[in-house]
Simulated scan of single mutants.
Amino acid sequence: MGRLTTHVLDTAKGLPGSDIKVELYKVDGEQTTLINTVYTNHDGRTDAPILEGADYVSGKYQLVFHTSPYFKKQGIELLEPAFLDDVVIRFGIAEGEEHYHVPLLIAPYSYSTYRGS
């Protein structure tokens, strides 16, 4: 069965990004529909897949990671508005049975992502 997972790593500290709000949207043209909202745990992961089962279908999706509140909780002073207030990652799921893992590596002024395993 296919599933979508993520995790967040704070590369500035070398630690998992915990308690970060993550929203998953389905993208259809210019319209986005919120499907799920989760928070990362102490290990920077979600407690369960963000998407799975009958809802896991091919298409275009968007993950929104609310990183600014996380950095503020870490005591990092950010300009307002923060340079990376939210990190938005759009991606496609081509196969309905594969595991897609979308990790986020963050720092106050940069981020990167890749298709993980």
Rank of each mutant, 00 (worst) to 15 (best):
L105D: 14
E97S: 14
E80N: 04
R115Y: 15
I93H: 13
E97L: 12
A107E: 15
T6M: 02
D19W: 09
S110I: 05
R90D: 15
Y114T: 09
T6S: 12
T37V: 15
D28V: 11
V27N: 11
L105I: 00
D86Q: 11
Y70P: 07
Y109P: 00
E98Q: 11
T6D: 08
A82T: 12
R90Q: 15
T113K: 07
G75P: 03
F83C: 05
G2I: 10
G17W: 05
I50D: 03
G92R: 15
Y109K: 12
P49N: 04
R90L: 10
D28L: 12
S58N: 08
I76W: 02
L51P: 10
I76T: 07
A48P: 00
T67L: 11
L104D: 13
L24A: 11
R3A: 12
H7A: 01
Q74E: 15
Q74P: 10
G116T: 01
A48K: 15
S112M: 13
Y61R: 05
V27S: 08
K13L: 10
G75L: 08
L34F: 06
L34D: 00
L79G: 09
D19L: 05
A94D: 08
H101W: 06
E23P: 06
A82V: 04
E80Y: 09
V102P: 00
N36I: 00
G116I: 02
M1L: 13
I20C: 01
S18V: 03
M1C: 06
Y111C: 10
H42T: 11
H99K: 14
T113I: 04
R45I: 04
R115Q: 05
Q31P: 00
R115K: 06
A54L: 09
D85G: 13
L4C: 13
T6N: 07
G53L: 04
L34Q: 06
V57C: 05
D10Y: 08
Y111V: 06
L34H: 01
G75A: 08
P16W: 09
E77M: 08
E95W: 07
V38R: 14
D10G: 05
P16H: 10
I93V: 15
D86A: 08
E80D: 13
G53W: 02
N36S: 13
K13C: 03
L84Q: 00
S68G: 01
F65I: 09
P81N: 09
V102K: 08
T46L: 03
L34R: 08
P81H: 09
D10V: 03
K21N: 07
E95A: 13
Y109W: 08
A107K: 14
L63Y: 10
Q62S: 05
G53C: 06
G116E: 13
E23R: 15
I50R: 07
R3Q: 14
I106K: 07
G17I: 01
I106V: 15
F65E: 05
A54F: 02
